[in-house]
Design a binder for these strands. Structure first.
Lengths: 213, 213
DNA sequence: AATCATGGATAGTGACGCTATCCAAGAAGT
DNA sequence: ACTTCTTGGATAGCGTCACTATCCATGATT
């Protein structure tokens, strides 16, 4: 398949595909002649994944490149590749602040993880994301202590068990990593949308109305 | 408190505060003279909320204005204000597509909600977000059927009960709405970070290593 | 009286994700 | 062989977004 067909089958303009090629999000096609290259199903898959990461997962293009590089790095052990790939994904973490709220947030975050029997890794981007989110809540004066967080943590653990089990169903290591990245990123909007729907449901149930849109 | 102090106490530059005033995210201060205005604690609270929405919740400035306008609209019934405010929040939904995947996604989304006893409101932005996320998953060839989604839905329902209960603790209607918006948006990164941490934990447990960063 | 800060207006900036235009080399059609 | 695409590669431009910098006249502060 040549560029035009790749474009047609993916719904992505050739200009954009060229841009992704330039940015290293897509491997160059197999050169057929000095003016033509051939793309395969693998390219199509990859292109769709890139689109999903960038558009649904709001992953910046430069970040997507890092993530995909880690997925493909056959020289590192599986678990490390996974860590690098998922660690590069955006978490909404802001830079480190030194603040009463930040300190309290760090303590709460650690406490939740210890309580759930998790190993606390402060360098983990997700850990930093958690701290910065909790700190923001505290700064605004909303409650966000161990008791508030525990239900979320417990549910997160349940989801994780479910998801990791799903990933094990894939065969090839690279396919597994790809699935891990895709499922991590793409189930986020699923989870958040369901939460919003559940909130609307619960709000209209409690506050009496018939409909909360 | 004058502009400079508002800036200092919030950590937001005066230029940015002026920008927010222009954009209608902040009400103008009480005019003291033709060249000075006075801001109060309420302005500070609001400013912090705006910052949190924009930076942590990645809510576009223009959207934040709509959300806050709904929160403050004292002419509408509470539940409607809530619906408008939360409905304006971004969901990662993309425009409507007509696709085999989109059709299947719509069916799955409806099925989950019916199964959980929720009223299906297709116009709800969260509903559309769900459909578009599920469709993306399906297009990439990942499983996303009723069985996959049910655990997420069940957990979402649990969270929602917990959160709506929290909101009821606030007194004034406007304060409740503010809390609803803040908690909806700011618990998202908390939930997602916890999920990532749980995944790392579970991955390193299953795939044998000692650390998934 | 001299200096400074203020709010308002307006234009500019930098990052980001494309998008449009050129171009020479080669494929395809006749 | 000759014309007419089409291709991949390079480069520059565009539109949006969230600020940010500069100016200004008025009026507060010392």
């Amino acid at each position: 398949m040549r560029l035009a067909e790749l474009s047609e089958r993916s719904g992505v303009s050739t200009a954009t595909i060229k841009y992704y090629l330039r940015e290293g999000l897509l491997r160059p096609g197999q050169r057929i002649s000095s003016t033509q290259a051939e793309y395969d199903e693998e390219h199509l898959r990859r292109l769709r994944l890139v689109r999903a990461l960038v558009h649904v997962g709001r992953v910046p293009v430069a970040t997507a490149r890092e993530v995909l590089a880690a997925v493909e790095d056959e020289n590192a052990p599986q678990l490390e590749r996974l860590g690098t790939a998922v660690g590069a994904l955006p978490t909404g973490a802001t830079g480190p602040v030194d603040d009463a709220a930040a300190d309290a947030a760090r303590e709460t975050a650690d406490a939740v993880q210890r309580r759930l029997g998790w190993r606390v890794v402060p360098e983990n981007p997700a850990h930093q994301g958690l701290v910065s989110a909790v700190a923001t809540l505290l700064r605004l004066g909303y409650p966000c202590d161990l008791d508030q967080l525990l239900p979320y943590g417990t549910l997160a653990a349940e989801l994780a068990r479910h998801e990791v089990a799903l990933i094990e169903d894939f065969d090839a290591p690279t396919t597994q990593l790809e699935a891990a990245v895709a499922l991590t990123v793409l189930y986020e909007p699923v989870l958040l949308s369901l939460r919003r729907l559940a909130q609307a449901q619960e709000a209209s149930r409690r506050f009496g109305g018939r409909d909360a849109e």
